[in-house]
Structures are given as structure tokens and as C-alpha cells.
């Protein structure tokens, strides 16, 4: 466990908590893509099946359970408790465009052709594109609440820190996981445009709105 990895995990957790607190306090999930949140719940579910079979550490187990809980509570708030505030009209990204290639790729390119390994690979590929419905929604409405941009910033920061973690592990432990690294790079690239807007607008006190 290195400093990039722990900061990455903290940043990931912070992103999910920011989103939950935003929805809870405002009693509204306006501007949030329910589809992205469903995809994240699916990512955690398919990746953390090893909770039942493989013990790694207390930290690992606790974080996995917390991530799963956060993801499912978020989905419940969007589609259950506060569904009247959910902007389904603008959450119109077609999930099959992501799911079909991701499922196909996880069958083609994996470490071993076993159900758990394919599900793990599926979760890695899916995570790299899961934010797209959210980014699509922002580009469609042309704006995002500032709190939503903080959520996206920490989610992107988590990915960038994981890249640093992998570089560190490559040099110190001779470790690399090519599926995770390639997907992680792809995922981080999706955030670059957003990072630019976040730094040039939101951090200067302006609302994120697209021309």
C-alpha cells in the first residue's frame, strides 16, 4: 500500500460521499445520471464477488462493503426515494452501446476464461466507461451544479492517483496489471476535458456551463 493508492481510495470514497450528501441535503438528484450510478453499482457487484471467496485484508473487505453500500444507496435514492426529482429526460445515454462492447471485450481479453475472472475483467472495462452517461448528460443540458463537479473531480482524481500507484508499483514491486492499467488510462482520459473546465471555471468561483 503506497501513498498514491491510499489517497486514491480516499478520493474515491469522498466522491461517493459528496454525491450522497448532495442528494440527501437537497432532497434532489437533479443533474445526476442514474444510469452512471447503476453502472457503478454493477461494477462493484461484479468485481467484489471475491468478498465471499478471497480474504485480502480488513481494509480491503471494509472498503469493498462501504463502496457497495454507497453505490446501492445512491441508486435507491435516485430511482426510489427521490425519483420525482430525477431528470430521466436528459439521462438518455443508450446503455447497450456501452454494455455490449464491454461484455464482448471481457470475453475476448481476460487473464483466464473462468466466470469470476471474466466478471472481474467486465467490471474493470465497465468502470472505465461508466461515467460517460453522466458526462453525456452534462453536455446535453450544458451545465452542472458546482457540487456535482466536485463529485466528478474527486472521481477523476481517484483514477489519476491510481495511475501514479501503478507507476509506483511497477518500479518498487515489479507489479503491473495490464488490463487495469490500460482501462485506467482510458478512464482518466475521459476526465481530462472535465478537469480543464473544473480548473478554469469552477475553481475560480464560476458555475460549470458549456457554451
Amino acid at each position: 500500500m503506497n501513498v498514491f493508492r491510499i489517497l486514491g481510495d480516499v478520493s474515491h470514497l469522498l466522491a461517493m460521499v459528496i454525491l450522497l450528501v448532495k442528494i440527501w441535503r437537497s432532497k434532489s438528484c437533479a443533474g445526476i445520471s442514474g444510469k452512471s450510478q447503476i453502472l457503478f453499482a454493477l461494477v462493484f457487484t461484479s468485481r467484489y464477488l471475491d468478498l465471499l471467496t478471497n480474504f485480502i485484508s480488513i481494509y480491503n473487505t471494509v472498503m469493498k462493503v462501504v463502496f457497495l453500500l454507497c453505490a446501492y444507496v445512491t441508486v435507491y435514492l435516485i430511482y426510489g426515494k427521490f425519483r420525482k426529482t430525477f431528470d430521466s429526460e436528459n439521462d438518455s445515454f443508450r446503455l447497450e452501446f456501452l454494455l455490449v462492447p464491454v461484455i464482448g471485450l471481457s470475453f475476448l481479453e481476460n487473464y483466464s476464461f473462468t466466470p469470476t475472472e471474466i466478471l472481474w475483467t467486465f467490471s474493470i472495462y465497465l468502470e472505465s466507461v461508466a461515467i460517460l452517461p453522466q458526462l453525456f448528460m452534462i453536455s446535453k443540458t450544458g451545465e452542472a451544479e458546482t457540487i456535482t463537479t466536485h463529485y466528478l473531480f474527486f472521481l477523476g482524481l481517484y483514477r489519476a492517483l491510481y495511475l501514479a500507484n501503478w507507476i509506483w508499483r511497477y518500479h518498487t514491486e515489479n507489479f503491473y496489471d495490464q488490463i487495469a492499467v490500460v482501462s485506467g488510462v482510458v478512464q482518466t482520459i475521459f476526465y481530462c476535458d472535465f478537469f480543464y473546465l473544473y480548473i478554469t471555471k469552477v475553481l475560480k468561483g464560476k458555475k460549470l456551463s458549456l457554451p
Binding site: H12, N54, N60, K64, F67, N174, D177
Partner: peptide, 10 residues
């Protein structure tokens, strides 16, 4: 190094 699956990561 040989690739390894990062199952200890979240």
C-alpha cells in the same frame, strides 16, 4: 516484470 492481476486493489 510479468503481468499480475491487481485483485488487492479496489
Amino acid at each position: 516484470p510479468a503481468p499480475a492481476s491487481g485483485k488487492d486493489e479496489l
